[in-house]
């Protein structure tokens, strides 16, 4: 599958719950429909909270990926 290029990348590594989630929501609010937002985080709360938020808010969760020493959550703004 072709890799989806994010419109915006937020590096929230080192920031604690709920910091990364709030950064993601901020980017979501500032963005437009179709935007792909990627967030890097080292916070375990975010790993659960962010995908949950993306689904509940009716947006698309593209994926949660384990990277070296952090993880990446990618979403598409669909509404």
């Amino acid at each position: 599958m072709e890799e989806i290029k994010p419109t915006r990348v937020i590096d929230a590594r080192g920031s604690f719950c709920p910091g990364p989630l709030m950064e993601m929501i901020k980017a979501y609010k500032q963005g437009k429909v179709g935007d792909v937002i990627s967030i890097y985080s080292t916070d375990t709360g975010t790993k659960k909270d962010a995908p949950e938020w993306i689904k509940k808010s009716g947006n698309e969760l593209i994926g949660v990926y384990d990277r070296k020493g952090y993880f990446e959550i990618v979403m598409r703004k669909t509404k």
Partner: peptide
């Protein structure tokens, strides 16, 4: 402030 964040995250 964290609970307030959770509330805002939930709209």
């Amino acid at each position: 402030s964290i609970i307030a964040s959770g509330a805002v995250a939930n709209g």
